[in-house]
């Protein structure tokens, strides 16, 4: 399709405007974060003497090192397991077509639009009874369960489209189901698995509700939960709050910028299917 020059320009102008609006909050936070501590900053104003040391203060105050460790622990606890068991289930439901699989899948679909708020209260009492409250496991275990609807849905969609002949050929060679799964299907599913991994990483890292309900100690929470605690404690110190928030955001942003192509395609596909 040919587009006139004018059309192209208006289009670009709109996109640039949109991009600027998207960036505005970040820039505004940065400008506040660089003001001297103890002042009340005003809007967007580049400080005469940028206080980069505020970030050092925030790093100490927020206990960044501990936060990073905690978030990593939770992510490592949630994502590989979720991806693994969802891939297996997707394989079982989508490719092996287990008898009664539809019922299982139907059950999972119920959870696809379920707001976490609907189950957070019983999960709290469940975790308390298990003695896991205030440990990272209280976030890890329920998250795995809560991700299953989407994750299985996602992997099943992939496996449904894999031609049956592929397995038949491998069967002739005398492969067991496990060998079939592990040697033939998992390698083929790599793109789907990669996207799912990215999505689950993001969702885990940014999980807030479970973190604030199930764990009190900010250093045992997810990043979003820790950020919430940071705001709860320093919310009235605008300078420190902005510095700390930007700092807490940095790891996510770095990972995003490195893998941005994968992130965007994963998010696009993720929403298209979800």
């Amino acid at each position: 399709m040919r587009l006139s020059r004018r059309e192209r320009l208006t289009g670009r102008a709109f996109l640039v405007a949109l991009a600027l609006i998207t960036l505005l909050p970040f820039v505004s936070m940065l400008s506040a974060a660089l003001q001297p501590r103890g002042t009340v900053p005003t809007g967007l104003a580049w400080p005469a003497d940028p206080q980069w040391s505020n970030f050092v203060d925030a790093f100490t105050v927020a206990n960044m090192a501990a936060l990073l460790r905690s978030s990593l622990f939770i992510t490592v606890g949630v994502v590989p397991v979720s991806v693994a068991i969802a891939t297996m289930a997707g394989f079982g439901l989508g490719h092996l077509r287990v008898p009664g699989g539809r019922i299982a899948f139907g059950l999972l679909l119920i959870g696809l639009t379920l707001p976490f708020e609907a189950v957070v209260t019983p999960i709290y009492y469940q975790m308390r009874d298990l003695g896991l409250l205030n440990t990272r496991w209280a976030i890890v275990l329920p998250l795995i369960g809560l991700y299953m609807p989407f994750a299985v849905f996602w992997m099943r969609a992939h496996f449904t489209n894999v031609p049956q002949e592929l397995s038949d050929a491998a069967r002739v060679d005398g492969s067991t189901t496990w060998q079939l799964f592990w040697r033939v299907h998992v390698p083929l599913a790599r793109p789907a698995i990669a996207s799912l991994t990215i999505l689950l990483f993001l969702w885990t890292w940014n999980q807030f509700l479970l973190a604030i309900v199930l764990v009190d100690d900010a250093t045992e929470r997810t990043m979003a939960g820790a950020l919430g605690a940071f705001q709860g404690q320093w919310g009235t110190d605008q300078v420190l709050l902005c510095a700390g928030s930007l700092l807490i955001l940095t790891p996510t942003l770095v990972v995003f910028l490195i893998f941005q192509r994968h992130f965007i395609s994963a998010l696009l596909q993720g929403s298209l299917k979800g």
Binding site: V119, T121, M148
Partner: peptide, 24 residues
């Protein structure tokens, strides 16, 4: 073989049942 496929489905379903269906 098809029935044994349940072994693949069960872990996911179990986590889902324990942490979503039961709480629900």
């Amino acid at each position: 073989a098809r029935w044994s496929g349940w072994l693949y489905v069960l872990p996911a379903l179990a986590m889902y049942a324990i942490f979503v269906l039961r709480p629900l």
